[in-house]
Design a protein around this nucleic acid. Structure first.
Lengths: 250, 250
DNA sequence: CGAATCCTTGAACACCTTCAACAGGGGTGG
DNA sequence: CCACCCCTGTTGAAGGTGTTCAAGGATTCG
C-alpha cells in the first residue's frame, strides 16, 4: 500500500518512529515524553525486503515481532486444498507476528507486496523490559486487544455484507489506517492485486474488478491501475453501512 | 452449550478450576504446581446469570474480565441497521472481555444462553500481579494470541467455505472446545438457537435448519431438538476441509 | 399449562461464481 | 532500446448456491 506518492525517487512512504505501534511501547503510561533509549533497546535490527520476498513462512519458528517501517506486506495461511487465504495486509507503523506468541510458531506466512523495511523485535526482550518498565506490558495488551477488535469488525463484514459493501468497507479501512499514520487517506496506491483483495474479502477477483468499474462510474472513486483516489467518502461509508467518519474495520 | 448431560437436576456442566483459562495465569512458568493463593487474589467475586440475562451491554465501561464457570454466553455487536452480529459463543473455562482492554469500553454485549456462572476479574488486579509474578503477563499474551489465531481461522471459514462446510467446521469446533475442557465432545446440547448459529456463520437460519436435516440424513450426526450427537467426525472433518483430528477454528 | 419462541419445509429469485477470451503493462533479456 | 512474455486486469455469459418470503407445526420455559 501507499508507496510512491508523487515521490520522484519512487520510494515507499515511511512512518516516523512516533507513528509506529512499537513506539507506543516506549511511552511510559501517563507521560508524553517518549523513552528513546527504551525503544533502542527493544529493536534488534532492521530488515529490508524486495517485492515478493517472504519475511517468514507458515510453520517457521517464532523468533521476532516485526514493525513495518515502510512498504507493505500480506500475511496468509496455506490451506489443505493448496490455496492460500490472505489473513491481513500490513501497513507502515503496524505490528506483525502477534498470532505466533502462543504456539511459538508462525501460523501464517508473510510476504512483502513492495520494497519494504521492518524493525525486528525479539519478544523476550519485550518481556524482560516489561518486568522493568510497568507500562510496556499494558501497552502490549492494548495492542493485541485492538487487533481483536479489528478481527471482530472484519468478521461482521464477512458475515453480513455483500460484495460491494465489503469492498467499500475495505477501502475506507485502508484509508483510515493510512490517515492514522499521517499519510493521505484520499489518494494512495494499492500495493496488492485485485486477486489479493478478493481473496482477503471472500469475493472473486472478477467481482472486485467489476466493482471498481462500478464504483468509478458512480463517482465514488477514481482508479487508474493501482492508483486510487477516494472522491465520495460519504457515499462509500453509506455503502459500507457505517456512520460516516467511522472505520469499518481495523 | 453443553449443559444437562444426563444430569437429573438439569444443572449446566461446570468446569473445575484447573480446566479454566484463568487457571493458566496461576501456573508459574515451567512449574506444574498451581498457585492457589494467587488464583484467589485474582478472582473478585462470582456472578450468576439467568437465561437471556445480559452480563454487559455494548458500550458499557470495561470493569472486569470474566471466566465462564458453567453455562454459556453469546457476545454480539449492535449494528447501525438495528440488527445484531454475534461475534462469539463462550463455553465453560473460557475468558470474556479481552476485546475491551484497549478502548476501556465493551465493544460488544454479552448475554447468557442458559443459567450461567462466572468469575469476575478486575484487570488491574491482574496487572498488579503481573508485576510481582513474572509468568502472569506472559500467559495473558498467550491467551490473547490464541484468540487471534481463532479469529484467523474463523476468517478463513467465512471467506472460503460454503454453508455446509461452515456448519461442519462450527460443530467440530464446539466439540473440540468441549473436549478440551473435559466434557463429552460427541454428545452435547446446543444452547444457542438455529438463528444464532446462522447469524454467527453468516448463513440464513433456514439454511442452518436444512443443513441439520441433510447432515442427519447423511448419517453425520443425530439431532433431536438441541441435543446433538456427532456420529461421523471423519465425515464432518472432510466436509469442513480440515485433516481429521484438527480443529477448524478456536 | 399456555403463550411465545423456535424450527422446518417449500418455491421463486437474486447475487455472485465460474469459465472463457482478450487487452494492457511492466519487467527482463537480447 | 526494443521486443517479448507473463502477470494482471477487464468484460461477457451461464449456472449454482443461498436468501427471502411465507406458512404450518413443535417445543420450551416461566
Amino acid at each position: 500500500m501507499n508507496l510512491m506518492p508523487a515521490n520522484p525517487r519512487g520510494d515507499a512512504l515511511s512512518v516516523a518512529c512516533q507513528d509506529c505501534s512499537l513506539f507506543q511501547l516506549a511511552l511510559p503510561v501517563g507521560r508524553d515524553e517518549p523513552d528513546w533509549a527504551l525503544l533502542d533497546r527493544v529493536v534488534k535490527r532492521r530488515r529490508l525486503l524486495e517485492r515478493g520476498e517472504p519475511l517468514f513462512q507458515p510453520g517457521d519458528p517464532f523468533l521476532f515481532l516485526y514493525a513495518v517501517k515502510f512498504g507493505s506486506l500480506k500475511t496468509y495461511v496455506s490451506l489443505p486444498d493448496g490455496h492460500d487465504q490472505i489473513t491481513g495486509f500490513h501497513l507502515p507503523g503496524e505490528l506483525l507476528g502477534l498470532d505466533a506468541i502462543d504456539g511459538e510458531v508462525h501460523p501464517c506466512g508473510a510476504r512483502a507486496l513492495e520494497p519494504t523495511g521492518l524493525c525486528e523485535v525479539p519478544l523476550n526482550r519485550l518481556e524482560e523490559l516489561g518486568e522493568l518498565v510497568s507500562g510496556v506490558q499494558r501497552q502490549m495488551l492494548r495492542i493485541m486487544s485492538r487487533q481483536l477488535l479489528h478481527d471482530q469488525r472484519l468478521q461482521t463484514v464477512l458475515c453480513r455484507q455483500n460484495a460491494d459493501e465489503r469492498l467499500a468497507a475495505f477501502l475506507l479501512s485502508l484509508s483510515d489506517r493510512l490517515r492514522g499514520r499521517g499519510f493521505d487517506g484520499d489518494r494512495f496506491r494499492l500495493s496488492m492485486t485485485r486477486a489479493d483483495i478478493g481473496n482477503y474479502l471472500g469475493v472473486a477477483k472478477e467481482t472486485v474488478s467489476r466493482l471498481f468499474t462500478r464504483f468509478e462510474r458512480a463517482g465514488l472513486l477514481a482508479i487508474e491501475h493501482r492508483q486510487l483516489r477516494l472522491l465520495d467518502r460519504q457515499g462509500l461509508a453509506a455503502l459500507a453501512g457505517v456512520p460516516a467518519g467511522t472505520t469499518p474495520f481495523r
